[in-house]
Structures are given as C-alpha cells and as structure tokens.
C-alpha cells in the first residue's frame, strides 16, 4: 500500500497522502509532520488527496491538529486532489470552513507563490 510522501517548498509543507488515512496512518503522519516542522519554519500545509481511497474521522482530527499549529503563525491549510469519497467526509465534518481547496498541488503553490518555479522543492522523506 502506498505511504505518504513529504516535500518542502519554502514555508510550505506538501503532504502527498497514501491510499488510506485512518487512525493508524494519522498517528504516523502526525509524528512525521512534527519532525519536519521542528526543523523548518512551516506556515502552509498542503494535503494532497490524489491517491486517497479511504479516510475516516481520525484523518479529520489530524488535519485539524495541523491547522491549529499553522494558525499560530497566521498560516493556512490547503487540500488538493479531493475525490468523491474524501469529499463526503470533508463535507460531513465541516472542515471546508477552515481549509482552502485547489484542484492540484501546482495550483495551490501557484496561489501561494506567484513565481511559478517549484524546481527546487526538496524531498525530505
């Protein structure tokens, strides 16, 4: 099963989520994200759902936790690549009131940084 991948672009952490975001994976994502955020100043977090086939309320809790963290720095959480299954969970939870939505990572980064060159993204995990 595909796992999460992390990328940092300037002050933005991009999390390419794996196929499933349940309590088991959410715990891991939290730990890995905290590790990155201890080393780098992260103001924005992009959760890319392109590969996600399943998410439950543990995923919601994990996103809300990261939202509270970046809110301290007046940052934001963005979700991208959301498909029907995840969309239902996000709608039911009311999370759309907190996060920004873009169709893909490029669009999200484009909205955050207008330069348009993401070539120096570094892979961290």
């Amino acid at each position: 099963m595909s796992k999460e991948k992390y990328e940092v672009y300037e002050q933005c952490l991009i999390i390419y989520l794996g196929e499933e975001v349940d309590h088991h994976r959410a715990t891991q994502i939290k730990i890995e994200t905290e590790e990155i955020m201890e080393k780098k100043f992260i103001k924005f977090i992009v959760f890319d759902f392109s590969r996600v086939k399943f998410m439950d309320s543990s995923g919601i809790g994990m996103i809300m936790g990261r939202y509270k963290k970046v809110q301290c720095f007046k940052g934001n959480v963005i979700v991208t690549g959301v498909k029907t299954t995840v969309d239902r969970i996000l709608r039911m939870s009311g999370l759309y009131k907190l996060v920004h939505v873009y169709s893909n990572v490029e669009e999200a980064l484009g909205a955050l940084y207008t330069e348009g060159d993401y070539s120096h993204c570094e892979i961290t995990c």
Partner: peptide, 14 residues
Amino acid sequence: ELERSGMGFAFMKT
C-alpha cells in the same frame, strides 16, 4: 490531546 475530532459517533449515525 490525541487529536480526536469527536466525530466518530456522528459519522456512524449519519
């Protein structure tokens, strides 16, 4: 503290 959203039962009910 475990970042539980408190939505489990609400999801089951819905």
